[in-house]
């Protein structure tokens, strides 16, 4: 007997429905587990006191500060580099062998896994340049790691700015750079910001590239040459070495909430900026 196509159609539809909700369910479950297991141990003291006894007791304050230093400094360097590269590629050159090579370089960087960034940062910054395990080595490694994301998202954002706006700007006697800073970048701002936020999220959650460059000292870093520990690294060590499951869950919750927070801010800014003049 031949099965009717309409019957197959119905079965597929039911199957896909079920399966989509199953998949989404798994993803929701991940967030839910972290939330319910972590929230009993999460309080202000956990956030504002530093870890003691390898993290068995106390909070995660020094790792929060370590994360903030690492992420802010990396973004601070990577943003001008990345946005500048995107501007160069879209505004200052025509497509040529030169832009092809640069794009190839960016794509290749984007594909390199974080452990290789860790390996490179370790041998180059930590060992060869003699920085030792330090905030500086971590920042430079993470900067290179997030650069391709910022370049690609900025380029996409810059490309969506209508050509007309540029033409008008030039006709009003603007130079190229004035057009870029006054017309292109403001219009592409939300898109660029989204890319930056994605990079922030990636840097916050990164472990492999950080642990071999910034190290894992639990002390509060006070200079660029100090080692330090980020939340993600702390969480990894807590969980891997079985130091404390409670602290691990609570740290995971802070990590996930930070990522959520960063995403929400990105959306908020994006909506606010795009709705202002439209």
């Amino acid at each position: 007997m031949r099965i009717s196509p309409n019957f197959v159609d119905k079965i597929v539809k039911i199957g896909l429905n079920f399966q989509a909700f199953f998949t989404v369910g798994i993803l929701i479950a991940i967030v839910a587990v972290i939330f319910f297991k972590g929230s009993p141990y999460l309080n202000l003291e956990f956030i504002f006191s530093s870890p003691e006894d390898m993290g068995r007791h106390g909070g995660i304050f020094s790792t929060i500060i370590g994360t903030i230093f690492l992420v802010l400094l990396s973004i601070f360097i990577a943003t001008p580099l990345g946005v500048g590269t995107a501007i160069f590629l879209t505004e200052y050159t025509k497509e040529s062998w030169f832009t092809k090579i640069i794009r190839f370089g960016v794509e290749s960087l984007a594909g390199i896994p974080s452990i290789l960034y860790g390996l490179f940062g370790f041998i180059f910054f930590v060992v060869k340049l003699g920085m030792g395990w330090s905030l500086m080595a971590g920042v430079l490694t993470i900067t290179i790691m997030i650069l391709p994301t910022i370049i690609r998202t900025s380029e996409e954002a810059v490309k969506t700015v209508p050509r007309n706006l540029r033409i008008v700007s030039y006709s009003l006697s603007a130079t190229k750079w004035e057009t870029v800073t006054k017309v292109v970048l403001p219009s592409a701002g939300p898109g660029i910001l989204t890319g930056i936020m994605l990079s922030v999220g990636r840097a916050v959650g990164e472990t492999a590239a950080v642990i071999f460059t910034m190290g894992s000292s639990l002390r509060l870093p006070t200079s660029l040459m100090d080692s330090g520990r980020t939340m993600a690294v702390h969480f990894y060590i807590l969980a891997r070495e079985g130091i404390s499951m409670e602290k691990a869950y609570a740290t995971a919750l802070v990590l996930v909430l930070s990522i959520l927070f960063i995403n929400i801010i990105a959306y908020y800014i994006m909506n606010k900026v795009t709705s202002k003049y439209s």
Partner: peptide, 8 residues
């Protein structure tokens, strides 16, 4: 220009 193009 032919089409009015206000800046946003």
């Amino acid at each position: 220009f032919a089409v009015p193009i206000p800046l946003p």
